[in-house]
């Protein structure tokens, strides 16, 4: 053990400085997690897990990326893991059935026409001031929270992280054709939720 200590000193031999991690990166990582998970407690836990996992893998840090990028990559992996778990719960729940039903209401099952009650109408915010826009964003966030877990995971990974479609399909175990169906349904639902709550 003594010899190992001598050969490998985490704080001096590596281009990382864990003593500064919390003050330098904790808020950044917390914000990163919170904006993707909208769950404060979970976001906090993931920040801690990220630091501890990083310590364990400190010898793998090559210095080819910055400390911050490296920590973010570890966090990102953990977030995708959360998506994966939440989504697989969803697959076995009855929610999926009602979500399917909900979708069917939007269009006529025979000719694919918009059903009258669900026809998009103008929001009327295009030329509004920034305050109205931020109110609108708030409603958008609430609408996103109502989405089934799998849909939200797919939507967030695609739009916030701009992940490759293949990578999302692999991570969340959905087929490419299902991916597009989810993207479509998510938007139809989000749009309807916005219209309903914006008045």
């Amino acid at each position: 053990m003594q010899a190992e200590n001598k050969d490998f000193n985490i704080t001096t031999d590596l281009p990382i400085n864990p003593h500064q991690w919390v003050s330098r990166y904790a808020d950044y990582l917390y914000t990163y997690a919170l904006s993707r998970l909208t769950d404060e407690e979970l976001a906090r836990d993931l920040v801690q897990e990220t630091f501890l996992a990083a310590l364990e893998r400190a010898d793998q840090f090559k210095g080819s990326s910055t400390e911050k990028t490296w920590l973010t990559a570890i966090l990102k992996y953990k977030i995708v893991d959360v998506y994966r778990k939440k989504s697989s719960q969803f697959l076995h729940s009855t929610d999926s059935v009602s979500a399917e039903k909900q979708q069917e209401d939007f269009f006529d099952p025979d000719d694919g026409h918009w059903n009258v009650a669900h026809r998009p109408q103008a929001f009327g915010i295009e030329d509004q001031d920034p305050f109205t826009q931020s109110e609108f964003t708030h409603i958008l966030q609430l609408c996103m929270k109502k989405l089934p877990a799998l849909w939200l995971s797919v939507f967030t990974m695609k739009h916030m992280d701009e992940e490759e479609t293949d990578a999302i399909c692999t991570a969340l175990k959905v087929t490419p054709s299902n991916f597009w169906v989810i993207i479509h349904r998510t938007k139809v639902n989000l749009r309807a939720c916005l219209q309903k709550n914006w008045s």
Partner: peptide, 8 residues
Amino acid sequence: INRMVKDM
């Protein structure tokens, strides 16, 4: 909506 999500 896509633009707003990105802005957010």
